[in-house]
Design a protein around this nucleic acid. Structure first.
Lengths: 109, 109
DNA sequence: TCGATACTTAGCCGCATGGCTCAGCATTCA
DNA sequence: TGAATGCTGAGCCATGCGGCTAAGTATCGA
């Protein structure tokens, strides 16, 4: 068992918030500054910044400061972790389904 | 923007814990009782039950009690929500990439 | 019927999260 | 240089999460 993937914990946790998913969605269309991103969120800037840092510390986005502006962009590779996990899960289901079918077939024959 | 999906919040939240992902993984191989599932987890039964309820209340598993045993099974449909979200995200990226390519192509011509 | 089994309920505790304010700092622009 | 802009840091507060213990309920098996 185990499967202690702290990284996966963080990725799922980061995506479990609508504000953060909205940021991801927006960044899918290209990089943006913190100010631009925050414009859509119903909260103060310091609160919003916490979300940005959660996304960054879990590797879903990268940010860089140029002058007084911090620009954010998506780190697409990170999303593959979720897809891999889902694929693995489906593989387990499929294996089981295959065995069940085999069992049924053998019963019939 | 918005995209206030409380359901998606719950699904990601539920998957953001290794104990719960382990349960999902185990249930992928078929139904199991709470006792069986809890055997693998390094915690007391009441603590473990909280995880089971989180999974159930977010629709990732279904449970039913028969006699004194509660049996759990996966609700596979729920996982499609995550896959849909990921697919939507990829669609956004792809659209952008397509536009960039089109832009480059037009510049060249 | 009585003990063992399999949860279940109630409640406590420490820490993390997600909001806020207020004040500060660096950059840009007039 | 001085005001405006765009974050950033410190710290408070309420709530929720994830662990625990202790005690309770309902079934099953002898």
């Amino acid at each position: 068992m185990a499967q202690h993937s702290a990284v996966l914990d963080g990725v799922f946790e980061a995506l479990a918030d609508p504000t953060r998913r909205a940021v991801v969605r927006r960044l899918g269309r290209g990089p943006a500054s913190v100010g631009e991103l925050a414009g859509d969120a119903p909260m103060t800037l310091p609160s919003f910044m916490k979300h940005v840092r959660v996304l960054e510390s879990n590797g879903l986005i990268r940010t860089a400061k140029s002058g007084r502006v911090r620009t954010c962009e998506l780190n697409r590779e990170r999303f593959a972790l979720v897809e891999d996990w889902l694929a693995e899960q489906r593989r387990i289901w499929t294996d089981r389904t295959d065995r069940l079918e085999k069992f049924v077939t053998e019963e019939e024959s």
